[in-house]
Design a binder for these strands. Sequence first.
RNA 1: AAAAUAAAUCAUCUUAUCGCCUUUGAGCAAUCAAGGGAGGAAAGUCUGGACAACGUAGAGCAGCGUGCUUCCUAACGGGAAGGUAUUAAUUUGGAGACGAAUUGAUAACAGCAAGUGCAACAGAAAAUUACCGCCAAAUCUCGGUUUGGUAAGGGUGAAAAGGUAGAGUAAGAGACUACCGCUUGUUUGGUGACAAACAGGGCGUAUGUAAACCUCACGUGUUGAAAGACCAAAUAGGCUGACAGUUGUAGGGCUGCUCGCCUGAUGUCAGUGGGUAGGUCGAUAGAGCGUAUCGGUGACGGUGCGUCGAGAUAAAUGAUAAGACUUUUUAGUGAAAUACCUAAAAAUGACAGAAUCCGGCUUAUAGAUUUAUUUUCUAA
RNA 2: GGUCCGUUCGUCUAGGGGUUAGGACACGUCCCUUUCACGGAUGAAACACGGGUUCGAUUCCCGUACGGACUA
Length: 152
Amino acid sequence: MKFTFKKSERLNSKKVIEQLFDKKGRETNPSVFLYPFRVTYIHEILSDKSQVISEDLNVTESGELTTLENLPLTTTPPQILISVSKRSFKHAVDRNLVKRRTREAYRLNKHLLMQKPSNQIPAYIAFVYIAKTIEDYAKIEKSMKAIFKKMV
RNA sequence: AAAAUAAAUCAUCUUAUCGCCUUUGAGCAAUCAAGGGAGGAAAGUCUGGACAACGUAGAGCAGCGUGCUUCCUAACGGGAAGGUAUUAAUUUGGAGACGAAUUGAUAACAGCAAGUGCAACAGAAAAUUACCGCCAAAUCUCGGUUUGGUAAGGGUGAAAAGGUAGAGUAAGAGACUACCGCUUGUUUGGUGACAAACAGGGCGUAUGUAAACCUCACGUGUUGAAAGACCAAAUAGGCUGACAGUUGUAGGGCUGCUCGCCUGAUGUCAGUGGGUAGGUCGAUAGAGCGUAUCGGUGACGGUGCGUCGAGAUAAAUGAUAAGACUUUUUAGUGAAAUACCUAAAAAUGACAGAAUCCGGCUUAUAGAUUUAUUUUCUAA
RNA sequence: GGUCCGUUCGUCUAGGGGUUAGGACACGUCCCUUUCACGGAUGAAACACGGGUUCGAUUCCCGUACGGACUA
């Protein structure tokens, strides 16, 4: 396992971002809340047809459906997004610093997530930085590991 | 030598491991190798352009912007040099009003001597002034009243109707004289702002305010890279062209208005063709940077030589570890100390992160270095 | 990225050079009532910050800070 973080692992589709953060998604999508992050993630793109099926996957985790979805998930790592609010940090320098530290912590600890059973690895993850102060790298790395443990 | 102020320059470094973006090369591909990777303000968005579309962008008005002069520049609301005014310090002329010189600072510094408006309170009066005064005449109850003259003095105010001295007068007054200030004309000097000299004006044509309306001069078409061009996929309204038809009418478009110009109701054929934020270009070799030399008081310009120095797009340029350096604090050394040296601890190590690109302006900025000015101390 | 607007008592607002910056709700004290509410009287409380123009600035101009709207 290499500690890489390529462009393909970044979430840049506006449709998926809207699904993560719109009103509907905020209620239905699973999320983990752990200082200094709020992490929201989904397992599959919710198109109009597959919406019912994927919701079943989240809730019931029926065996037949997950085995079908296994193949693409194991080969490709999830796409992630890191967000730092302009309200909490006024200067762009501070926002960039937090984003870089978060990205670095994800990159170096990604293998912990990939060791999980393949049906538990989400397809899209959003890390939202909530704290009002800039935390150092050690603290961010610690909470990143804890988040991976909590994610289902 | 120290401190303060102003200006300019720099604005942490080295090594290792793991990564990100990009260029070139190799490879069927995964990937590998080599090179490059934030700033002086990248910021604020206050300005001027390049570039692009709107029909190849028409006229006048309105609106908006600028406002001493000349120059620099692609252009500017930026810069350079100069002029004038105000002001501070020093020196100096004069009886005085008021000037002169040097050095520094400041100026949205065109026009209230075109028009209109405004000037609270106080004051008689805030722009065709007369309250207390001063003077003369009349009158009577003999210190008041009335009429007239006057604007020197008083008081109010931010601002009071040219100032000083004289002569003059009933008292006074540019009504008169000298000087000063203001102002008009001519001449001379200067590219010009303007300056100097001479001759007038007689200052009730002339209080202040244009960051009040406004006048004058100059500039300005509008919208901004989410502009716009191309490629792939994909449908309707639409759009374009040709032909026929039509009062070039209603209506529509071009800039807010007017003029002016263009288009203009239907049918057939052919072509083109949204949204859907997919990709490529625009988009990084430029009014570029460095250096030498020449011209210019200077901003700056010419010439020669060298050089390529980020190009992301939910947005790269980083993380960790060790060491050096810096700053702060504490302790020690030392006769003492704010200096130097040693040790330890702390500090995400000033402000701050490219978003089409350049020229400026403004604002933020730990520390270091250099230059200039002022003050203090020490030595000769 | 671009364009534009605003900031006045605790809150919502008026005032667009001149004497004490006005009003409503809320708040304090007193009166009314057995008490509370309603009502009456009275009081405290504000021009975002820094410069400039002006005799004088909340108002005009410039800069800074903060907040908001529009633009796909």
